[in-house]
Amino acid sequence: MAQAAFVLWLAVTLAFVAMELAPGDPAQALLAASGATAEEIAVRRVQLGLDDPLLVQYVRYVGDLARGDLGVSWLHGRAVSRVIGESLFPTAVLAVAATAVGVGWGLTLGLLAALRRSTWLDTLVTAIAVLSFSTPTYWSGILAILLFSLRLGWLPSSGEGSWRHLVLPALVLGFALSGSIARLVQTRVSEVMNEPFVVAARARGLPARQVILFHILRAALGPALTVVALQFGFLLGGAVITESVFARRGLGKLVVEAITWRDLPVVRGIVVFSALVYVLVHWVSDVVQAWLDPRLREELV
């Protein structure tokens, strides 16, 4: 607990220092184009507390957080929790959809490769897997738009609103995720097939299909889920590239906006949120592993 608090404090402080070093004055940025005079901008600066000594600003910045107050966005003029919440929803939708695609596709590929070891299929799957995490989503996304939206006209190229808008980004992002899952499943299944309990099961005469389903898959699922959990946590941080290519809103865009406008309360909120996700994801992956692998469960208990 103390260590988690230390990690959080470190991350938040890092954000404060970086925003302090970065050029740009939030009050001026907000008001200059509206015809506000220099005095009026100065008044706003005082209002936002930007004229206080740095130490005072920092204490307030950490102190608010310690009291659980995320504050009000300077740019949006609304509670940071609401601003983040509104961006989180579309990000979460995309993250879930992309993870589903990635797991489905990755599991299929990985199993195929492991069960047909050293065949052309194995080679092909390995190639697809490496290709998937070598392809920038900002390129595959553009190609997908070019093909499915502009040439074929099947799907909308961008934006949100219906599940049709979700298809292309989820496929593109899911494909990018699938490679590492496929490889993990492939390796793990190959290993498991040499384990004594699988060999024993086969010796008992269980059909291959059943062996795969009950023993191999179960053993392979653990590490795969760990990767999925880590990646899901990463996606929740905002798949900014995919959001940008498909013009979706989400946390990634919020991050860019908050930094661009030096919106310190939102930056702090995002840092806190990602730290929580980070801790949560690691905890979840530990628990899942333990649940799937009885040996570990005993260790943990």
Partner: peptide, 10 residues
């Protein structure tokens, strides 16, 4: 960015 431009210009 726009806020940076304001500072550079100032």
């Amino acid at each position: 960015s726009y806020p940076e431009a304001l500072e550079v210009a100032a």
